[in-house]
Amino acid sequence: MQIDLSKKTAIVTGSTAGIGLAAAVGLARAGAHVVVNGRSEDRVETAVRHVLAEVPGAHVSGVAADLSSAEGVESVVKAVPEVDILVNNVGIFGPKPFFEIGDDTWEAFFQLNVMSGVRLARSLMPSMMERGWGRVVFLSSESALNIPADMIQYGFTKTAVLSLSRGLAKLAAGSGVTVNSVLPGPTYSEGVGEMLKDMAEEKGLSIEEAGTEFVKSERPSSIIQRPASVEEVANMIVYACSKEASATTGAALRVDGGVVDSIVP
Rank of each mutant, 00 (worst) to 15 (best):
I11P: 05
V12G: 01
V12K: 04
V12N: 01
V12P: 06
T13Q: 06
T13C: 06
G14I: 01
G14P: 02
G14S: 03
S15V: 13
S15T: 15
T16E: 08
T16P: 00
T16A: 03
A17I: 01
A17P: 00
G18F: 09
G18N: 13
G18Y: 10
G18M: 12
I19D: 00
G20Y: 01
L21H: 11
L21K: 10
A22V: 08
A22K: 05
A22G: 06
A23V: 13
A23Y: 07
A23N: 12
A24L: 07
A24K: 01
G26V: 04
L27P: 00
L27F: 03
A28S: 11
A28K: 06
R29M: 11
R29C: 09
R29Q: 15
R29G: 12
A30E: 10
G31K: 06
G31L: 01
A32D: 08
A32G: 05
H33A: 15
H33S: 14
V34S: 06
V34A: 04
V34Q: 04
V34H: 03
V34R: 05
V35F: 15
V35A: 14
V35D: 15
V36K: 02
N37Y: 06
N37H: 11
N37Q: 10
S40L: 11
S40P: 10
S40Y: 12
S40D: 14
E41Y: 10
E41L: 09
E41A: 12
E41Q: 12
D42I: 12
D42C: 12
D42F: 11
D42E: 14
D42V: 13
D42G: 13
R43C: 12
R43M: 12
R43P: 11
V44E: 08
V44A: 05
V44T: 03
E45R: 11
E45K: 13
T46V: 12
T46K: 11
A47K: 04
A47N: 04
V48R: 05
V48N: 04
R49M: 07
R49G: 03
H50P: 05
H50L: 03
V51I: 04
V51A: 03
V51D: 00
L52Y: 01
L52H: 09
A53M: 13
A53P: 09
E54W: 10
E54A: 01
V55T: 08
V55P: 00
V55A: 02
P56K: 01
P56W: 03
P56S: 09
P56T: 00
G57S: 02
G57K: 02
A58N: 14
